[in-house]
Design a protein around this nucleic acid. Structure first.
Lengths: 245, 245
DNA sequence: CTGAAGCAAGAGCAGTGCTCGCGTTTGTTG
DNA sequence: CAACAAACGCGAGCACTGCTCTTGCTTCAG
């Protein structure tokens, strides 16, 4: 049923790929806002109207690019994890964080496409969900390994803040305690806060050495998710009695 | 020098205000991408070309809106801080976090304008910097008060991650130790990671009860910046020996 | 009072996403 | 093999955008 169409079908997927390739090139150069269907068609030597045979609208083209970007990010995260196979969970965690950051710095417009302002009204069709989860799965895997190994240090939380109403446990990682999943998702969002601020210029006159700063913050995130056990040592400052309200 | 121009000048600032008002209305309705100079002019009953007497380009109009948005966010943060005047630093911290989040949820497009993908190429003229710092100053103030009071609990960090190369100490808060400022800036970015994810739909099939989740995460951030002292108690899970690599 | 500056308007340019009707090519079916 | 239908590529065209330029008019300053 696929080879019967033969040349036609193959030509179609070839043209589709060429469109996406050229679109990705323009995206990397000018950003999603400047991505123009007419310019893509012009560059490919075809009429702009012919392009609508392959993508019914500009947003559909963008959606395709979004999915690709998610996959690309997921690959980068997996590669960073595999490159840090031998080390402990903390360093593997920070390694993946840095891998994600490096990908973002290398593909700023693609990052903006998936984690920046949603371009049209509010798209995000469900087809993007699995691709989006690929990178997240890497972090989940690290936490799962750590939990099965030495366990996780759950920082003491005010009891009224226990996140029981967060529903992701079953869908995302059924074998992890819900607090861990909640903390993990929060860390996930926070990581992209750090990266987004750096990428979108929010650190411009604020943070000088971004590499060091990011390593610092990623290490703190490892604390937050419970990968680091509280060390006995010089922890608190001057007068530090008991608890605070 | 200002009253000499009299009517002319007053008309000018009135028209300028009307343009900004209408632009802000369209921004709130459709988002920055859809904001059209011609539509603004149309709604105001004037020719589109006349609008260029007041804003030399579309980006300049957006810049004006950006500054306003920063100020509006700053006001919201200050209001949240003042509303939580009597409580301790931890609850004041989370109160301001929730105030910022509430502002973002109430002004999604304005939030996207200042913390989302930068709209043009890369603008962010320096005029926006002071306005942007207004909300940040609220958080700094809380940390400063806490440090002068009971002190801050500095979580133990791997020594190689000490952020000495972060230059913001002098500019931002000269009276706070640099690690505190670095941690604070990181928490600042992370807070907007959380808000941005919620706002831009990244939590769509992931986080159910966003209020609870955010409160949880904001509490964790209070830990991160050292507002909460480590509690003796049931901290770690099963077998939890010493340290991890 | 006169000249200069500020202002509003309209036409126009180059660009955009998208639609429609046309002829052609291709693959399938009788 | 012939005929038909579907897919394809193209060009014109619509409505829209940001922006510029020229033309008049109003207001202010010397």
């Amino acid at each position: 049923m696929s080879s019967t169409h033969g040349a036609r079908a193959r030509a179609r997927i070839e043209v589709t790929a060429a469109i996406k390739e050229e679109a990705r090139r323009q995206l990397a150069e000018e950003g999603a806002v400047k991505l123009s269907l007419r310019a893509v068609a012009r560059e490919l030597g075809m009429a702009s109207s012919a392009l609508y045979r392959y993508f019914p609208s500009r947003d559909d083209l963008l959606t395709a690019l979004i999915i690709d970007a998610y996959e690309s990010l997921g690959e980068a995260a997996e590669a960073a994890r595999d490159a840090a196979a031998g080390v402990g969970p903390v360093h593997r965690w920070t390694a993946v964080c840095e891998g994600v950051r490096a990908w973002a710095l290398g593909h700023p417009h693609e990052y903006a496409l998936i984690y920046g302002t949603p371009v049209p009204g509010y798209s995000a069709p469900d087809t993007t969900v699995p691709a989006a989860g690929r990178a997240a799965a890497v972090f989940i895997g690290i936490l799962r390994d750590a939990e099965r190994g030495l366990g996780l240090a759950q920082p003491p939380l005010p009891s009224e803040l226990r996140p029981e109403a967060v529903r992701m446990a079953a869908d995302i990682a059924p074998d992890l305690p819900p607090e861990v999943v909640a903390t993990m998702v929060a860390a996930w969002a926070q990581l992209f806060g750090l990266i987004g601020f750096e990428l979108f210029g929010q650190f411009n006159r604020v943070v000088e050495d971004r590499d060091t700063f990011f390593r610092h913050a990623a290490g703190q995130l490892a604390h937050t998710v419970g990968l680091v056990f509280p060390q006995p040592g010089p922890a608190t400052r001057p007068g530090a009695p008991a608890v605070r309200s």
